[in-house]
Amino acid sequence: MTTARATAPARPRFSRDRFENRFFGVIRWVVIALLIIATVFPFYYMGLLSVRGLGDVLNNPGALWVAIGDLSFNAYTRALGSVADGGEGFLGFMRNSALLALGTVALTLLVSIPGSYAVSRLRFFGRRQISALFLAVYLFPSILLAVPLFVFFTRVGLRGSLVAVILVYVSQTVAVSIYMLRNYFETIPVSLEEAAALDGASRLGIMRRISLPLAMPAIVVNGLFVFMVAWNEFLFALLFLVDKRDQWTVSLGLSQLTGNSIEVPTTVLMAASVITTIPIIIIFFASERLLTEGLTGGAEKG
């Protein structure tokens, strides 16, 4: 197309517009390629090292693929196996993480569904102040909370219990959860609820029979989001659970692999990283579209 234009006699041989179109047309694909490499390669490398033998990695660190014959899953056996069998116990860590994440999801949704409904639908004393409080909580850096919470739970003897960690996680996720759900509730026409009210339904009846079923997609996505947050969390898991190996989460377990006196091979480290990452990647790709819409809701209204 550009060459055809170049031969047209009426046009100047060089124009800024034509140059820019061609330049950005090329540079755009270069940038896209670089971005894909930058975002995907670390994950590819993680998977690649996890299925190679240790000797193979040390002899040939620059290899970008693995021959079928050299595939080795020993790293996974070692990472997942229990400590008694000479493994690193990641199966147990996964169970802890799953329990913790599911508990956080359940409790967060339990308080944030009624909360977000109230903030989006009902007029009550202090509604504006409460929104401001949640924004502050959301912006507040967790390292500043770490000290008093650590001290408090140490003092009441609950440090090291999963319940304490769940409570902290809920306080960290409830603000964003209310924000996401509130955005969704506001897209549901009020007239539906008013019709139900005219038919004699109570406020709670309306919530349960009309609003909740309509908001179900948003609730599911929100639950998945909270699950990802709780699964990935590191700082509070480190502070609260590090003394109790049987309570470790996958993130904590992974971080402690290098801290041991016994050298853990890189391949095992990468296998454990893959184990930690896979659930998140599955959930992310399953919910990606709804998730980004939920998070940036309101941004498009601009």
Partner: peptide, 15 residues
């Protein structure tokens, strides 16, 4: 944790 997890505001949209 907040920084890594909660990509948007509560009372108001960050955008």
């Amino acid at each position: 944790m907040t920084s890594t997890t909660t990509p948007s505001g509560t009372g108001t949209s960050p955008v």
